[in-house]
Design a protein around this nucleic acid. Structure first.
Lengths: 345, 345
DNA sequence: TCGATTTTTACTATCGTTTTCTAAAATCGA
DNA sequence: TCGATTTTAGAAAACGATAGTAAAAATCGA
């Protein structure tokens, strides 16, 4: 492997000069610059990022911490992050915490040792705030929260998210406007704030439309396929009569539809289903899923752009970016049947 | 940040001694060892991986190169890799090549500069073999191919895969045994070997069962949702009359089913559909998808274990591990209708 | 008690780059 | 032509850890 000193020797200049030329911080003659650059190229020099990192304290690595890479939301987010990173000569370390605060904390530790320049963080609820995160910040590691952001921002870390409450409100209201009154909700894991907020939005839609809210229409899910399936079964076993379901993500909506089908309930004729996320799959399942579309890729991209900017400029992050959502109406929802008689479950 | 010298000072020993104690390569008195360890702990020492990497030429980073993180196969693979990495104090750099040989090559370059210890590689077809890969190997970077492995192994790089041809053969044969003769195939991108092999398996099943193979029953896809959808439309527009479809991955199967539904063709009553991969979704779509199940997580895990072992031992990799597949029968396939009359398309 | 051996610890060079400070060379005005 | 100024380049000290060798200390046998 060719080193800077090798180039220096061949060009009869000092290593320092070569370093400056290579980094573009060189002030000196055009002639030397070109000569060195040519030699570097001829020799096939490739910079050693490790050595560079040690001295400059910049690793050109960012980390993406997600709760679960196998939930389709996160690969899409990851694409956004990676695309921006790649364009800026950064690499991305992927950390799936598997929804486990302990694993998450372990990752934070290893990222600290690694001197990553920044972290994009979709975090599970844990006590990382007490110690780990302040410590990272003290070490000048930049951070951006995305999707699963903390409630308040005591530490001035930037946040990129959607308005979960509003989006859930609009989803529920959409069903109400279709004439539904008996709307069940399959929530996300309620130890996450996004799940809480979506549930809140759901509840608020009832309140603002003067519809009595029934707690037994609400069942907790996990954001995974099977929990949508189970959720519907739980509801049906409880004898809950609903004409619509708000599933707090698309995957659970798919699971829910499957469970309904198994009981010979037609979607949307017996039950309307609306999802949340807007993953590509929505369009292709049967029936195509009406859903609240989040700009997932955009969120990843925005978070990464923010992060890299703050790394580049060495400035503190404190923005709060709230991206827009929209409802994509497809085939899984329809107006409630006017006869007022629901299919017997 | 606490450094080794800080510990050394406080413990009245040399930095070298501390380093050895911390790394577990120390031969000396138990007393010193315990004293140093205690001081290190009290001071809250965290090792600096960058500095360590520079000297030891080990970064404790491996990379995972995948063609497309948003295809569900790859997050699952990634989980396997990451779980093993985490257990061994390794971090994983995620590289999505987006099916672009140029991006892939760029990633290989940056990984070389980064001195990653190893690479797990699900590669797109490109000319990386000419130059980049030998170069990496010359720099003692260990490599394992997984899923999308090259045809031959000139360079003695380990491979972890399934027998795609055999698996596709069995899928097709499964349909044949159900009485189907007119079986369409939606392939993967035919510039990939796995797609070619699956197609080959499909063809072989015809030959071995003495069924004439019709080329216009074959349509090329991209492994993505929309291409399954489009594939079916292409077939139908060509006027191809099929009673079954072998989709070369599950995502395309989902797309295909959607297209069939749109034309009022029932699955499995009018058309049987079998997929490939065994992603969790299969169970939850309507109808539940019969598919060839690959041990995806296992593949990732195996590849990572192989890689880490070879890094640890400093040995060359050259194994070839072929994992088993099985057909999971669900609702999307049934025996061909005996009347011999197919629904008019 | 003394040399020989073993155990324990220290020293020093290195990994490859960056960066600051300083010195030499070149240019310029008067 | 000479001193002042500007350009251009070099020297050297990090960054933090590691590893091989050398030295010091301790132990032992005779």
């Amino acid at each position: 492997m060719i080193r800077i000193v090798d180039i220096a020797e061949k060009a009869n200049v000092s290593p320092g000069t070569v370093s400056k030329i290579l980094k573009g911080t060189y002030i000196g003659s055009q002639e030397t610059k070109e000569r060195v650059l040519k030699i570097a190229k001829d020799l096939g020099y490739t910079p050693n990022i490790i050595a560079s990192s040690l001295k400059s304290r910049r690793t050109r690595i960012i980390a993406l911490i997600v709760p679960e890479i196998s939930v389709p939301f996160f690969p899409e987010l990851s694409r956004g992050v990676e695309d921006v990173a790649r364009e800026n000569d950064y690499n991305v370390i992927l950390c799936s915490s598997n929804n486990d605060p302990v694993q998450e904390a372990k990752y934070l530790e290893s990222l600290e040792r690694r001197w990553v320049d920044g972290i994009i963080f979709s975090r599970v609820t844990g006590d990382t705030f007490k110690e780990k995160i302040p410590r990272l910040l003290a070490n000048k590691v930049k951070m951006v929260f995305v999707d699963r952001v903390p409630a308040e921002n005591r530490l001035s870390i930037a946040r990129v998210e959607i308005d979960n409450k509003k989006a859930a409100y609009s989803a529920t209201e959409f069903l109400i406007k279709l004439g539904h009154r008996d709307i069940a909700c399959i929530t996300g894991p309620l130890n996450t704030r996004i799940a809480q907020q979506r549930l809140e939005g759901y509840k608020r839609a009832f309140i603002e439309n003067n519809i009595p809210l029934k707690e037994d229409f609400i069942v907790e899910g996990t954001f995974k396929l099977d929990s949508g399936f189970k959720g519907v079964n739980v509801l049906l076993e409880k004898g809950v009569h609903f004409t619509a379901i708000f599933a707090c993500n698309d995957l659970m909506a798919v699971g829910a539809i499957k469970a309904l089908r198994k009981r010979n309930l037609d979607v949307p004729n017996d039950v309307s289903v609306i999802g949340f996320d807007g993953i590509p799959l929505c369009e292709y399942i049967e029936p195509a899923l009406t859903t609240v579309v989040q700009p997932i890729y955009e969120m990843g991209k925005t978070a990464a752009e923010l992060l890299l900017e703050s790394i580049r400029e060495g400035i503190e992050l404190k923005g709060h970016i709230v991206l827009d959502t929209r409802i994509e109406v497809r085939e899984s929802t329809r107006e409630v049947r006017v006869e007022g008689k629901y299919k017997k479950f």
